[in-house]
Design a protein around this nucleic acid. Structure first.
Length: 470
DNA sequence: AAAAAAC
């Protein structure tokens, strides 16, 4: 069933109880999104549900709201949680927990968040007291189970969130193991952006007569996102990236790279040219990851350099731009990365740097999306000889103070200046240009050649990380 | 080719 073209009811029409409706109203929402309008009545009716939807569609509330309603009465026993939500990443689990807090504030329900990378003391205390809602990543949940601190026999509602991602990440054996620990009849809700065979198998084995709610076809790009590919030589991709940021007047973006080490060193580079950047990837401490994410959400950080840990699930609202520094190996990841922008019908822009070596990955994306990619040429992006210094501009003048330098910005964005470690950082780099150049209508268009001066100066040498061969 | 997740 597709609900996207149906007139939407208000939240009050969905059968949710007063305390929940009040919390929804407090949060400022009046009308459910299509996935919520479809899923909430089905969950309240006690049905198993398959939700085919990406984050940004209101997916999380489509299960938290009816779960709160169902769990509102009754009490949890020690170590016997009444519901379980499985998430692929710690960050997504944390967000889901926040969602339960928001909408459950007028209910007296207890919750525990079982994720790795954080201390076990609080988790144990919560489990001992008994929880109505248990939100977990598979590894830590099984850890607790093996310690005998959590029993899964009392689960009435199970949610498998981002099932396709669980599959990609190799969690399915763990998920199946957890599913087999549940006993008796319970309600199962499964959410997934795509439906690969591994996910279908889980559905066939563990869901009964599910209602399917689909709100967006998985491999389609949102109409409101302008996605363009930017051919680069690959010799000096970092410089090309900074040039792109300046030319397109990108003031806030998630920048994806394929490897953790690349993310880390790209982050240092962006900081060294004066951009307010931070990185997030799986080798960083959990507290650090969360702090970075919070700072980014609070507009204290302009550029989040990330691995695919941030590609899916994370609810970062109103992300205007996504940049792929690398073309993702897997075309599904492309869809998910791009899905960070253009949420809730807002317009968004997505840029993907593309070296000749990445042609295969680009072809895979074209195949998946079913349309040829649009290209945008950056001026001066012809291949450079290895090791050569960037050419000096013909007319070298003292760099003009970019007008944008003094441009007003929201106060919140002014915090978190360029790190002190970069004495050479130039403020001009932070506010590249006043207005974005319009994107081309035609597939291939060269841009005007306005490039802020600072970009034409020789760039500080990249970090001395060893490019290890073999 | 990578990333993600338990210690």
């Amino acid at each position: 069933m597709t609900t996207s073209d149906v007139e939407l009811p208000g939240f009050a029409d969905l059968g949710l109880g007063e305390p929940i409706l009040k919390a929804i109203a407090d949060a400022g929402y009046t009308h459910p999104t299509p996935i919520q309008a479809g899923a909430i009545p089905a969950v309240l009716a006690g049905r198993d549900v398959i939700g085919i939807a990406q984050t940004g569609t209101g997916k999380t509330a489509s299960f938290t709201l009816p779960m709160l309603h169902i769990l509102a009465h009754g009490r949890a026993r020690a170590r016997m949680p009444r519901s379980l939500i499985l998430s692929p990443t710690r960050e997504l689990a944390t967000q889901t927990a926040a969602n339960f807090e928001t909408y459950g504030k007028y209910l007296n329900l207890s919750m525990a968040l079982l994720i790795g990378g954080v201390g076990m003391g609080d988790q144990e205390k919560a489990l001992e007291k008994g929880v109505d809602v248990l939100i977990a990543t598979p590894g830590r949940l099984l850890d607790w189970f093996e310690r005998g601190k959590v029993l899964l026999g009392g689960i009435q509602i199970l949610v498998i969130d981002e099932a396709d991602r669980m599959l990609d990440m190799g969690f399915m054996p763990d998920v199946e193991r957890i599913l087999n620990l549940l006993v008796g009849r319970r309600q199962t809700l499964l959410f997934s952006a795509t439906m690969p065979p591994g996910v279908r198998r889980i559905i066939e084995r563990f869901l009964q007569d599910p209602a399917t709610i689909e709100v967006a076809r998985p491999a389609t790009l949102a109409e409101n996102v302008e996605a363009v590919f930017v051919p680069v030589s690959g010799r000096d991709k970092r410089r090309a990236l900074v040039k792109l940021i300046a030319q397109q007047a990108v003031s806030k973006a998630i920048i994806f790279a394929n490897r953790k080490r690349e993310v880390a060193s790209l982050n240092r580079y962006l900081q060294s040219v004066g951009l307010n950047a931070r990185d997030i990837h799986g080798d960083l401490e959990q507290v650090h990851r969360q702090a970075t994410l919070d700072a980014f959400k609070a507009d204290q950080v302009d550029f989040l350099v990330a691995t695919d840990v941030a590609a899916r699930g994370l609810d970062i609202s109103d992300m205007p731009v996504v940049i792929n520094y690398d073309v993702p190996f897997n075309p599904d990841d492309y869809i998910h990365r791009i899905g960070r922008t253009g949420r809730a019908g807002r317009s968004g822009r997505a840029f993907t740097l593309e070296t000749p070596e990445e042609a295969k990955s680009v072809a895979a994306i074209e195949k998946l999306t079913g349309k040829p990619v649009r290209r945008l040429e950056l001026p001066g992006e012809e291949p450079v000889t290895n090791g050569a210094k960037p050419a000096k501009p013909a007319r070298e003048r003292r760099p003009r103070r970019e007008a944008a330098n003094g441009e007003p910005r929201p106060a919140a964005s002014r915090r978190g200046r360029a790190p002190a470690a970069m004495p050479s950082s130039r403020p001009a780099a932070r506010r590249p240009a006043a207005k974005p150049e319009p994107l081309p209508e035609a597939p291939v268009v060269a841009f005007g050649d306005h490039i802020p001066r600072f970009l034409l100066r020789p760039v500080p040498v990249a970090t001395p990380s060893k490019a290890k061969a073999g």
